[in-house]
Design a protein around this nucleic acid. Structure first.
Length: 854
RNA sequence: GCGGGCGUGGUGAAAUUGGUAAACACAAGGGACUUAAAAUCCCUCGGCCGUAAGGCCUUGUCGGUUCAAGUCCGACCGCCCGCACCA
């Protein structure tokens, strides 16, 4: 028997698809379009299993939609700027451009062995000047439109390397290479005004009905709309006022202190004459800049000795602290503390022995005796101890407090957002240069559009102190576009999130001279189905939503939302292995004997098997996709990726699971090439009479088509695989049956081959050919279910007594309630369970269940 | 610390709106074929009791709502993702 030769077959069909250009698409207004996109990869070196999963998921959608008659755009490119290229450059003395280009070549070749239905003519790399020059033009348009400004922002500063560190380069507060204590430092940065769109980005989440709820919820919380009030406190003995933001102005009578961020201007100015405060601020600035670092640090305060006047209680003075947990970037960088009704304020008050005055009394408590112990009360209730607010409910009190503050000129109701503007300046080489120049006479001047792109210099020294572009001897010297005098280029480059915020639009016209061709983007956008990791739930996806709106404001395109549908994918996990010394071992380095004991392949060392974790190089629990594809073929790898877990859940990579997928590939091959009865010829008409078994199989075919369609639309790919396998089981059982069943056999085999096509395109294409078709499977329309075949004639109904299953009964579909009840009570096991007791009631859910309640 | 999610047999999982828990596979065990192995085919397979018929228990833990809970509500435990300069 001929065994399936995946190597030959996969290469053959990849060649034919490419030669015929079946995945190359153009705008075609006569056909409905469908844009499928997977998050493009960073070219880190080689593809990993996460890529294989992501692109397999996308390919299933692309091929399914193509078979359904859509004009499918399915492109691939490279998110090619980033920090790892610079690290590799320093470690291996190779230029980031060369390293990146070589990685792209390797990964492209690897992806091509997977048989993905990409239109490779649209490939792009973001590090290419022909890509980033458009980004520079967009930036200039945003600048003109007032969507960009300069702002002093905090960065992690390594005082030894004289360089800015990314959060991931800060390990326990120290620079990853120098080991020096990292400081916070302020630098002028370019910032995108994403907050201009805060309300819109929040409101329009409601229109994204094909996004996962949890992603929308995360974005909603990230934008963090809060209604509250500004309150301005007079500071005793000073002319300026302390402006705070609060969501609980109703608790103002419970205020016992005020606190400001260490970076608040008032704190900064006080520190100039107060060495103790300066040292406290220094200590705060040794924490990282990440919110997690700030929020998990021990809460500390420094009493400035200043006091704030309470706006409604004459003579009451609140001590003013500098506190490490007050964020400069949220609200006004200052708060008032009401310990009774906020847990963090309560902890702070207990630590510094401040008053705790309850001002909201829960409905079930007595106002006279209600006290706060070690838990703040954050719920609703009636206001107490609060003068003119007494007796009001919380919401009414918020409105009244805001009204009174405004009347007295001490504040006003307001709305704030947690969302901050997007700082895009990076002090790095391997990124898109920001196209402005600094002129001593004219200030900051945009580069003329005709002079774009501002290209990165090739000759650069990496690994030295500071920003490599700033250290370059000549690159930054230029003439001012405005006055023509000597000027310096901006040496910062863009955050790499900028490139990934518009690449989906560039794919519509990837080689055009124009940044975005309106006819192309108007036809293809939005992306109908976007697929990628959940880790991008907020930043990348929110930035892209902002960028699309900014592009619309500047006339580049006409849509607001870039991604109509979103599917997030889980991670690939694998067991972990360590030797007796705790050193990590690769799966390829270990083996298991017949008794089930693990050891290293050489047999010398015992192996401890750890739980399954996300595949990572550091834990060595990785399997190289290239090895799997060489051993089993792309179809097997793809099937395994799809069959074991639903796409959004983590997937455990197991050798036995891959073996199982491989066996199914071969089983399909045998079913078609060596069936027990020969399938009918292509185009044979359905016989009038079928055997009972064949008639059942025919119904199963149509039910499976119907169910698989539904599964594919809903991303239940693992269920689709299970159903197709089930169908192949019943089709295979026709072997050796009546000769008249040949037609059903063919129908079943063709249906299985067609439906498995998006998942295992090569073997499916080959089997389609083996079944005698002259046309390509990829150009064959998706099978249709015959509605008449889907109607159930009878159903099995479960019968419960007091909620416990006691039997089942077979009834015609749609049987009336009383018919079902009578039949249920007649079931012997049910009657035995009732045992002559009185029946209180009988619940009948037609076609589902009967529950007899005693 | 804050925000979001997940938890079902030995394993991956399935169970449209609350309505027969464990479909489809993997692993394991037994058998057939074979000189033998691989491959393939057949059978068993959540736990306990029982020869069987059948019974009892079971969806991380505890509690609640309901005729009925894996599914809804509350509390807790464990794991994972994100937290703005990793991509």
């Amino acid at each position: 028997m001929s065994r399936y030769n995946f190597k030959e077959t996969e290469a053959k069909w990849q060649g034919i698809w490419e030669d015929r250009g079946v995945f190359t698409v153009t705008v075609d207004h006569d056909r409905p379009k469908y844009y499928v996109l997977e998050m493009f990869p960073y070219p880190s070196g080689r593809i990993h299993m996460g890529h294989v999963r992501n692109y397999t998921l996308g390919d299933v959608v692309a091929r399914f939609k193509r078979a359904q008659g859509f004009n499918v755009l399915h492109p691939m490119g490279w998110d090619a700027f980033g920090l790892p290229a610079e690290n590799a450059a320093i470690a291996n003395n190779v230029h980031p451009a060369k390293w990146t280009r070589e990685n792209i070549d390797t990964m492209r070749q690897q992806l091509k062995t997977m048989g993905l239905s990409y239109d490779w003519s649209r490939e792009l790399a973001t590090c290419d000047p022909s890509y980033y020059r458009h980004e520079q033009k967009m930036f200039l348009d945003f600048l003109r439109a007032g969507l960009v400004y300069r702002k002093e922002s905090w960065v992690n500063w390594d005082p030894v390397e004289n360089t800015v560190l990314a959060n991931e380069q800060v390990i326990d507060g120290k620079g990853w290479r120098s080991g020096a204590d990292v400081e916070k430092r302020q630098l002028p940065q370019w910032v995108f005004k994403i907050t201009d769109f805060a309300e819109e980005l929040l409101a329009d989440l409601g229109s994204l009905d094909r996004w996962p709820d949890r992603v929308r919820l995360m974005q909603e919380n990230w934008i963090g709309r809060s209604t509250g009030a500004f309150i301005e406190f007079d500071i005793a003995g000073r002319d300026d006022r302390l402006k705070v933001f609060t969501t609980r102005q109703d608790t103002i009578f419970g205020a016992s202190f005020c606190a400001m961020s260490p970076n608040h201007p008032i704190a900064q100015s006080l520190s100039e004459n107060d060495p103790a405060l300066a040292s406290f601020i220094d200590e705060c600035n040794r924490m990282g800049t990440s919110e997690a670092a700030i929020e998990t640090a021990e809460k500390k305060g420094f009493d400035t000795g200043l006091t704030c006047r309470h706006p409604f209680i004459g003579g009451k003075l609140l001590p003013l602290y500098v506190a490490n947990f007050v964020l400069m970037d949220y609200g006004t960088g200052a708060i008032f503390g009401c310990p009774a009704h906020d847990q963090r304020d309560l902890d702070f008050a207990r630590k510094y022995a401040l008053d705790v005055v309850p001002v909201v009394c829960p409905a079930d408590a007595d106002e006279a005796t209600f006290t706060i112990d070690d838990e703040a009360y954050v719920g609703d209730g009636a206001i107490i101890n609060s003068d003119f607010l007494n007796g009001m409910e919380v919401e009414a009190a918020k409105a009244e407090a805001a009204r009174r503050l405004a009347k007295n000129g001490d504040g006003e109701a307001t709305i704030t957002y947690r969302l901050r503007d997007w700082g895009v300046s990076r002090q790095r080489y391997w990124g898109c240069p920001i196209p402005v120049v600094h002129c001593a006479t004219c200030g900051i001047v945009p580069v003329r559009e005709a002079d774009l792109p501002v290209q990165l210099p090739e000759d650069v020294t990496l690994g030295g102190a500071g920003n490599p572009l700033a250290a370059h001897p000549t690159w930054k010297s230029t003439a001012c576009p405005s006055c023509g005098g000597d000027a310096e280029r901006e040496t910062d480059t863009f955050d790499t999130f900028v490139e990934s915020s518009w690449y989906f639009a560039r794919f519509c016209s990837p080689t055009a001279d124009e940044s975005l061709v309106r006819e192309a983007v108007d036809y293809w956008l939005p992306v109908d189905q976007y697929i990628g990791g959940i880790e991008h739930a907020v930043l990348h996806l929110l930035y892209s939503r902002f960028f699309t709106r900014a592009l619309k404001a500047c006339g580049y395109l006409g849509i607001k939302e870039p991604f109509a549908g979103l599917q997030t994918q889980g991670m690939i996990c694998h067991e972990t292995y360590r030797d007796e010394n705790g050193a990590w071992l690769l799966p390829a380095e270990i083996t298991r004997d017949d008794a089930g004991a693990w050891s290293t392949v050489d047999g010398n060392r015992a192996v401890n098997v750890g739980r399954s974790e996300k595949m990572s190089k550091s834990k060595k629990n990785v399997v190289d996709p290239e090895h799997i594809i060489e051993t089993y073929g792309a179809d097997t790898a793809r099937l395994f990726m799809l069959s074991d877990s639903p796409p959004d859940r983590d997937l455990d990579w197991t050798d036995s699971g891959v073996e199982g997928a491989w066996r199914y590939v071969n089983r399909l091959w045998r079913m078609v090439t060596q069936p027990g009865i020969a399938p009918a010829e292509v185009g044979t008409a359905r016989p009038d009479k079928l055997s009972a078994q064949a008639a059942d199989v025919e119904r199963a075919i149509h039910k499976t088509i119907d169910a698989v369609n539904d599964d594919l639309e809903r991303f239940h790919f693992n269920k689709a695989v299970a159903r197709i396998r089930e169908l192949s089981n019943v089709v295979e059982a026709l072997r050796g049956g009546a000769p008249g069943d040949a037609w059903v056999m063919r129908c079943g085999l063709e249906t299985v081959v067609q439906m498995i096509g998006p998942m295992m395109p090569h073997v499916a294409e080959e089997l389609w050919h083996q079944l005698g078709h002259e046309t390509l499977l990829v150009e064959t329309p998706w099978p249709q279910a015959n509605p008449a075949m889907l109607i159930e004639e009878s159903v099995t109904i479960a019968v419960q007594v007091n909620g416990k299953l006691r039997g089942t009964v077979e009834l015609p579909a749609g049987a009336a309630k009383d018919v079902a009840e009578t039949a249920a009570l007649a079931v012997p096991t049910v009657a035995a369970a009732i045992d002559g007791k009185a029946i209180r009631k009988v619940i009948v859910v037609p076609d589902r269940i009967v529950n007899v309640v005693l």
